[in-house]
């Protein structure tokens, strides 16, 4: 469609090809430009590798931190699931009362399991484990209370729900004291939140730096091709057509940077896994690093490509427009 000359056909219209073929040509030409940009990167290997390196490593740091935080959360939530409520029963509660209580609370929907430890049982256990066996024999009376260990169902094992359950259990007549030890868990959670915020801030700053670096690299690319762009504009290339190869360059930077970041994260986690195992053994927890899975990989790749495209878009918008034949 020509603006000046009615009836003059331009471009692909002249050969009367079908919409489908034009559609196909569109992808073919995009594919060619994409490959062309990749070839361009290959021709200036050292410079491209440096840019890809910057991008990759900038994504590696927040990704690794993210995987670590996520794992720490998994671990702490694992501990949380196991959280139990200890109910210490009143001394004057008779065995019948206790049996009644056990029957009653067993039916509560919040409770997964209960474990009754009588005072005598507890004393026996204490004798065996503490090594004070003989000394305990001198006690004239068992000082230990009867205890019920309550395990909430998984739905009611979060700190808030467990606390509600604890209050309800405390209201029972036979219960003297109820204890739920989740405060340290809450502190851990608060700490993890701070770390998470920190990771987010670091990530945002690094991503911004990546966008600026890619933008500047593409700007230099554009300036080094100034003559070519001038000629293309003289023979009627639109800005969009001229921009495309540079956008693909940004895409490839992002894609290759994302791959590099992925490899770097795997290597880092592998390298750190032995020291992590030492820590987790100290806590008597078997702990596998998770989170470095395929969906994380896709996320990283997508993010990286997005950053590459954003950087090049910012640059291309400004600088391709600026170059005008005079």
């Amino acid at each position: 469609m020509s603006i000046l000359f009615k009836g003059r056909v331009q471009g692909a219209q002249i050969s009367q090809i079908s919409t489908y073929q034009r559609f196909l040509m569109f992808f073919v030409s995009h594919f060619r430009q994409a490959l062309g940009s990749l070839g361009e990167l290959w021709r200036s290997k050292a410079a491209s590798l440096m840019t890809i390196g910057v991008l990759g490593l900038s994504i590696t740091l927040p990704s690794t931190l993210y995987v670590m935080v996520k794992n720490a959360e998994n671990v702490s939530s694992g501990w949380e699931q196991a959280s139990q409520i200890s109910l210490f029963l009143k001394e004057n509660a008779s065995q019948g009362d206790i049996d009644q209580l056990l029957k009653r609370i067993q039916l509560w929907p919040e409770i997964d399991a209960i474990d009754y430890i009588s005072a005598d049982q507890a004393l026996d256990e204490f004798k065996q484990l503490s090594g004070f066996g003989d000394a305990i024999a001198y006690l004239d009376k068992n000082p230990l209370p009867n205890v019920i260990l309550v395990t909430p169902t998984s739905r009611h094992s979060s700190p808030e729900a467990a606390r509600l359950l604890l209050d309800k259990l405390r209201d029972e007549r036979e219960v003297d004291i109820g204890k739920l030890d989740v405060e340290w868990l809450e502190r851990l959670h608060a700490l993890l939140d701070v770390v998470k915020d920190l990771v987010t801030v670091i990530a945002l700053l690094l991503f911004l730096a990546v966008v600026l670096i890619i933008g500047n690299t593409i700007r230099l690319n554009i300036l080094s091709k100034k003559d070519e762009i001038l000629v293309m504009k003289l023979v009627g290339a639109t800005d969009a057509f001229i921009q495309r190869p540079f956008m693909y360059t940004g895409f490839w930077y992002g894609f290759l940077g994302g791959l590099l970041a992925w490899i770097a994260v795997i290597l880092l986690l592998w390298w750190m896994s032995s020291s992590i195992n030492v820590v987790s053994e100290l806590y008597q927890k078997s702990f596998n690093l998770t989170g470095a899975d395929f969906s994380t990989f896709l996320w990283m790749l997508g993010l990286s490509v997005f950053l590459g495209l954003t950087g090049s878009l910012l640059s291309v918008r400004r600088h391709v427009r600026e170059i005008e034949p005079k």
């Binding site: 020509s2 603006i3 003059r8 331009q10 504009k233 023979v235 009627g236 800005d239 057509f241």
Partner: peptide, 10 residues
């Protein structure tokens, strides 16, 4: 401005 490219094709 956007149409200039198409003019130059003529």
């Amino acid at each position: 401005r956007k149409q200039i490219a198409y003019i130059r094709r003529d």
